[in-house]
Structures are given as C-alpha cells and as structure tokens.
Simulated scan of single mutants.
Amino acid sequence: MPVDKAMADSILDTYRNMYREMEEKGAEGESFQAMNAALNRMESLAQETDDIVDFTAKLTTENLFIEFSNAYSETMSGMVKEEYSTGRGDELLLEKTLEAYENAILTLEDHPNYELLKSPIEELIELGRSGVSYPVFLRIAEEKGLNKAMEGDLVLREAIISDKTFAEFMHLPLEVEKHEKVLQVHDELSSHAPFNVPDSFEFGLERQKIDWEYAPRINQWNLIIRLWEKMLENVYDWLDSFCSFAPYDDRWADMRGKAYTMRNIKRTQECNPGVLKAREKIFQDYFQMVWDDVFNHETFRNEYAANRVWYSDERLELIKKTYSFCIPFNKPDSELIHASEIIHTEKRYKRPEAFQYSSEDKEKFISIFGKEKWDEFFGKYEK
C-alpha cells in the first residue's frame, strides 16, 4: 500500500514543480537527466512504502534530495551559460533585474509608505523597458541616483517630518525641537551628497548625537512635570480629606467598612503635608524650584495649553490658597473646606476641556494617520 497521497504530495510537489519548470524551458543534458532519475526514484518510493516515516527516511538515506538539488543547480547554471554563449547574457540580466523590481513592488503593497517607495522602483523599470542595454541601464541609474533613491531616503525624510508633526500634536516642545534639528542635519548632509541622498552611516551618527543631547533635557522636563503633578495632588487630596464627602469618595472609601475608610482619610490628613514637604525639597535640590515657580514654569504652561492639567481654574486657585495651610499637624481653614465642598457638589473640580484635543491637534493627527484612524481612536469622545 503506497504512502498517503496528500502526505507524499506535500513532500514531492516542490521537486515536481522544479522539474516541470526546467522541462518547460527546454532543459537538456546529463544534469537534467539526473534530475529526472532522482525524481522518478522519489515517486517509486512513494508507491513502494506504506509509512511516511519510512518513506522520508529512504529519501534521506539515498541522498535523493541532495542529488536532485545538485542536478537542478547544474541544469540552471548550464542554461545561463548557454544564454550568455548566444549573446543574450546582458539581456537576460536586465530581464531578471526588472523582474526582481516588479516583484519588489508587489511585496511593498501593504507598506505605509508604499507610494513613496514604489516611485523610484517604477522609474527604474521604465528605464529598463525603454530599450537600453544592461550596461547603459546601470550607468543611467547611477547617474540619476535611482539606486540611491531606492534606499528609502524620501521615506526617511517623511518619517522625520511625521515624527515632528506627531510631537506637535502631543505638545512636546523639546521633541519638536529635536526633530527639527534632525531634519536640519538631514537636509544639510543631503545638500552636499551625491544625488542629494545623505550617507546613511554619517546621518545615523549625527542623529545619535542629537538624541544624546536631548535625552537628559527631555528626562528633566518630564520629571519636573511629574513632581508638580504630585505636589498639586497632595494638596488637593489633603483639603478634600477634611470635607464631609470624604467618607464616600473613591479616594478613601473602603469596602471593608467605615473604620478602614476613616483610617484612609486620617492617613491622608496626617501624611500628605510631610510628603509634600519631602517632594518640595527634591524639587528645590534638583531643579532649584519652589511651589510658586510651578504655575509660571514652561512645563506647567505647556501642559495647561495642551489640556493636560486636570483641575479646573477654580480648583487650581483653591489649591494655591490651601498650600500655605498644608503643613504637618495643621488643618485647612474652614472657608477652604466649605469652598471645596461647593466645588465638589457642583462638579466644578475638573477642567471641561481636560484631555480634549483642539481642532488644530485634530488636523495634525489626520495629516499623519488619516481621518479613519482619528475616528477610530477619538471619534467617540468628540462632542
């Protein structure tokens, strides 16, 4: 009983197709006959054996895979030599080159920068189909810089611009500044380079220098924001912990019962002033800034403009007034507590536009990713 046909076909079809390809191309000679002999032996074994393991073992021990592959390589080599001997060498090379370019376009269809990548390849194909010889094709491609264009410099520049636009969308000024420098270096190197394509290694080094220059500045910027956010939160929570709504607020309410809830409230009342002072010391030691500097600092102004400050203006003013009371073993003034309760009851504690994107932000996002992506990510939040 022969080996299961489906299993045998999964092994032999590759070799059958390779043989058929050579046969259709009119292959002849000893190497082609060797291909035929090896394939016939494979077919015979498929009929003679009834176990797939035994079948593959015999294929391997008889070196049929290797014999077929070697014969195939010799047949291909012989056909290429024959093409050259008949004067079609350059013609064949050009044909194979253009065929490879056409296949490359097909593989790029799902690439986000498909149109940019496709353009220089199509120009090369058009040049190759214009009737020029292979040497002339190579010379013109080099003179026009088409080979360099295929390295993707157009895509690289577009990517830098996209990074800059995205940084603008996210309101990240240092990142915007960094990408502007990267773009400037790219264009400067391009202006002095053959075919206006910068050397990728040189550009990579320059870009890395810029990354190193901005990394500590960006880290500092982010740490400053993180610190003043926590400081504002310390004062905000401390004031609210003295309000009548505190036992019912998610910040303190504990499912285990009132005793646990009151313990949470007490912890905020007693610990937040000390935590605030510790953070203020870090703020001053590392960034030479104090509480009053926060609201005029570029990080705060930027976060406010980007709608990333959660608190309403009214709540921010109340936090500022509360700050001087937020010291260990102290309590906020009763007027501050009353004002906080009114703001909470009327739900005026959150800035209406907090974490909302402006129309300008929307345009920037769409310019990079398209309206479909905007609708997917943010459409449901639009008012």
Rank of each mutant, 00 (worst) to 15 (best):
A104I: 08
P332C: 02
Y214S: 01
L116Q: 11
V309Y: 01
E188V: 02
N63Y: 07
F203Q: 13
V235A: 01
S358Q: 01
D54R: 11
Y286E: 10
L39P: 02
D237G: 06
M262G: 02
E24F: 09
R263K: 03
N40V: 04
S358V: 05
K144T: 06
L92I: 09
H338P: 00
Y236R: 10
M35Y: 06
D250R: 13
L183K: 04
M150H: 05
E202R: 15
S241H: 03
A141S: 15
S191N: 10
L12H: 01
D249Q: 07
I66L: 13
R129E: 15
V176H: 07
I140L: 14
E168P: 09
W212N: 14
R207N: 15
I218R: 04
T107G: 08
D361G: 00
F201Y: 15
S73F: 08
G379H: 00
R308A: 03
L117F: 12
V132D: 08
T165S: 14
W310V: 02
I224A: 03
E213G: 06
E95L: 08
C243E: 02
F32Q: 05
Q284N: 09
I342K: 08
A246C: 02
G26T: 03
V176P: 09
D293G: 03
S85M: 11
G145A: 10
E213L: 15
K58W: 09
L108W: 14
Y248P: 01
A167N: 10
V132S: 14
L94Q: 12
F242M: 02
R308F: 06
E298N: 03
P112M: 07
F166I: 15
E48G: 02
F32K: 04
